[in-house]
């Protein structure tokens, strides 16, 4: 069932401020697979995600995403979508207009705007400015924008942040659907339930190393 590897991480090491965060991490993620990285605060989950996104260079080791090293260039971002901290919203645009903007700059969006508003429970706030939303609603909008656009790889840093339990289940189904369509998901999460509901493979990061978890 496992097809060609989309992401390959070999013996990656990262030291931050003299503190070794990742020490020889190995990871391989296949096309259509969901990998949920778990571990305590400071285990290196977000650091590894930033390495996969090309936003941080590993001190040692090798990283390949979609057949090449990750690079912060538009061509890379056309295939890879990353969500981390809250986005800096454009002033003066509503929720719907942010989504329409995302659909307008990508020639083949995965869903139409109405569908996304419905899937992420944002229909009632479609005319609101993102600044006027609650923390959880803004997180839904971040995820909605990420999943509206076409991509081959999703890198999600704590996607469950601020979300209620009911929507986490819905998010798990959305991610499973994305993977079933051939997309690859790597997420850092503190919610084992989300990983389980999305039928993802859990990888525990501890002491700078990655271990497969049950």
């Amino acid at each position: 069932m496992v097809s060609e590897p989309i992401i390959v991480v070999r013996a990656v090491e990262v030291t931050l401020g003299g503190n070794p965060v990742l020490q020889g991490v190995d990871l391989e993620v296949a096309r259509g697979e969901i990998v949920a990285m778990t571990g305590p605060n400071g285990a290196g989950k977000s650091t590894l995600l930033r390495c996969l996104a090309g936003l941080r260079t590993a001190d040692a080791g090798e990283i390949t995403v979609l057949g090449g090293p990750p690079r912060d260039v538009p061509a890379f971002w056309r295939d890879v979508a990353l969500t981390g901290d809250e986005l800096a919203w454009y002033p003066g645009l509503t929720v719907r207009e942010h989504l329409e903007l995302m659909a307008a700059v990508h020639s083949t969006p995965r869903m139409d705007v109405e569908e996304v508003l419905d899937a992420f429970g944002l229909e009632q706030r479609a005319d609101a400015a993102p600044f006027a939303l609650s923390t959880g609603q803004r997180q839904r909008l971040v995820l909605a924008m990420t999943l509206l656009r076409p991509s081959r790889v999703l890198l999600l840093d704590e996607p469950e942040r601020g979300l209620d339990a009911e929507f986490r289940e819905r998010l798990a189904a959305i991610l499973a659907d994305y993977a079933a369509g051939g997309g690859t998901v790597v997420m850092a999460t503190h919610d084992p339930g989300l990983a389980g509901a999305a039928r993802g493979r859990r990888v525990a990061l501890a002491d700078g190393r990655a271990r497969s978890a049950v």
Partner: peptide
């Protein structure tokens, strides 16, 4: 303001994927 926003925080610009 759009250029200023993307300059301060390029996360949304990366999601949009338009060349700088």
């Amino acid at each position: 303001w759009g250029a200023r926003r993307d300059g301060d925080d390029p996360a949304l610009a990366r999601l949009l994927g338009v060349g700088p």
